Amino acid sequence: MTNGSGGLPIEYRPHFDRHSGEAATPEKASVEVARRIIDDLVRQGYQVGDRFPAEPDMLKVYEVSRETLREGLRLLEVQGLISIRRGPGGGPRVAPVNAAYLARSASLYFHVAGATYREVFEAWLDMEPTLVARVARKDDRDEVENAMKPFLATELAHDPRAVFDSAAAFHSEIGRLSGNRVLVLLLQSINHILTELMMERIDLTQSGSQIEHDHVALARAIANGHARKAETLAREHIIHLWDDFEARAGGRIDDVVDWR
């Protein structure tokens, strides 16, 4: 598969035997130990901020060399799943699941494949309205109404960061209420890529009134359980931002996604 923007072809080549479902080639020891650490993190109920055992204890549990263990931990640190503090009292700790790291990995693949920001906007337009409609149809109306209350009446922010924070909080609530963590992470990564681009190229304070207006209307439709209207408003909101970006940033919309 190729695209008009150039880039490397996209081919799906699974690294497992199609008959057995097992890995076709052995993984590096560091990748395997990283997977085991994550499995233990989930199974043992670690929480954000919890420290992992001391290095000597981890070496005994996982039966690997110090070099392999540290490389495995570095892999997890790069993915944002753990933080490693150096020095006395340091060591690896559990970090929250942060879609910004997924966005970083996705932007690398998008960049090499030649995908453009227009295609990212298209993906957002195809995905998020469906999630909004799901939330508007949610059975627990009290939960939905309480979550939407802070967005039913807002004051226009004059600081670009405040505009971003308000928008991020709104979309975060939509994701939380949807209950679909796969869609949440994918959409948060898409939003991250586009927000970085828009904050760099346009003045969000000039777009802030439209963003706030859209969010108030969306929050009201969601709180009232009007799924079809909410879905339509979500599409219009994305198109507003898309049109605004194209108007202010010229041909940047058709640039290949940067790896950030």
Rank of each mutant, 00 (worst) to 15 (best):
G89P: 01
V216T: 13
E119H: 03
I190W: 01
G89C: 04
I37L: 12
G91R: 11
L81M: 14
G87W: 09
L73H: 02
R228M: 14
A100N: 09
P88R: 10
R260D: 11
F245S: 04
V61W: 02
R104C: 06
D159E: 10
A133L: 04
S209M: 12
P160I: 10
E22M: 14
D57W: 05
A219T: 05
R18D: 09
A99R: 02
S189I: 00
Y46Q: 05
A115Q: 05
I239P: 02
A153W: 14
S5R: 05
T2C: 06
R260L: 15
I238M: 02
F121G: 04
H171D: 10
A123L: 14
Y109I: 08
N224I: 02
R70G: 03
A54D: 13
D126P: 06
I239K: 10
R141M: 10
E71G: 09
L204Y: 05
A136N: 03
P150K: 06
F164W: 07
S105I: 12
I82W: 00
N146W: 10
L183T: 03
A54F: 07
R161G: 07
L187P: 01
E155Y: 13
P160S: 11
I253Q: 03
S107K: 00
S172K: 08
R93A: 09
L73V: 08
S207Y: 09
V256H: 06
R104N: 06
T154D: 07
R248I: 03
L108R: 07
N224T: 08
P96G: 04
H226N: 09
R141W: 05
D203M: 09
S20L: 04
H19N: 15
R86Q: 13
G114A: 09
R248Y: 10
E212G: 02
